[in-house]
Nucleic acid binder design. Structure first.
Lengths: 118, 118
DNA sequence: ATTGACCTTAACAGCACTGTCAGGCCGCAG
DNA sequence: CTGCGGCCTGACAGTGCTGTTAAGGTCAAT
């Protein structure tokens, strides 16, 4: 499918799809005329990319991890190469998770206070 | 204390402290000469701001919430005013938390695979 | 062949954040 | 009073992401 339909189905703007491609995290085939041709597999990958990105991973990191995540039987050559990166991302993720949970708790408590005060 | 010492003690760069001030999330007193004079209370507040910000809240949102978080006995007038904002931030936070946890699990699983493959 | 919807790239623009640097003021030590 | 270190503001830079717009090619249908 072309980018317009794909954007609707994935919920990702055309702008961001092109950006994803420029960052090497989603590279659809091209028609003879140069039109991007997205597949069903691209749909899953796009969603995965979006989720990882929204979770705080930069697209560069996503690009590194992607080869390890797409295959059902992962090949570890590239994974091994980026293991350090991976570990860093993971601990950064944990840290962010902690901060996020603390903030969440704080805000939730605040919401409760507001509600009870009414 | 002046900004240099405060930066060291808080672990926040002078640049970011000035930025915080420009965004209205940390407003130290000024000496006659215009020097920023940070207090111990500012230290707590700066840490709070940093935590909330690192957790994904924009400084605008932090600025809105701050009046509700600083006092021991919160006054609800401003809180009431920003309750909708608060709720939105909270659900956004939950969403982010979910994404983050999913990513974390995915990455952790990946790390395990890599480790076991060696 | 023309039209209109859809696609292409390239560029400008903006936000949020962060570093750095320049030009200048302040304040204390010598 | 001179110097030096610290502070001030303002501006430029750069990254990551995102929207918008301009100029132009493609395609299906009329």
């Amino acid at each position: 499918m072309h980018i317009g339909e794909f954007a609707k189905r994935s919920g990702i703007s055309e702008r961001m799809l092109r950006y994803y491609e420029s960052r090497g995290v989603l590279t659809p085939r091209r028609s003879d005329a140069g039109y991007r041709q997205y597949s069903e597999a691209d749909l899953q990958q796009a969603t995965l990319v979006r989720q990882l990105n929204e979770a705080g991973l930069k697209l560069d990191s996503v690009a590194l991890l992607l080869p390890c995540l797409v295959d059902d039987a992962p090949h570890f050559d590239p994974c091994d190469r980026v293991r350090a990166t991976l570990a860093n991302e993971l601990s950064a993720l944990d840290q962010k998770l902690d901060a996020l949970q603390q903030s969440r708790a704080r805000l939730a408590r605040l919401v409760d206070q507001v509600k009870n005060a009414v």
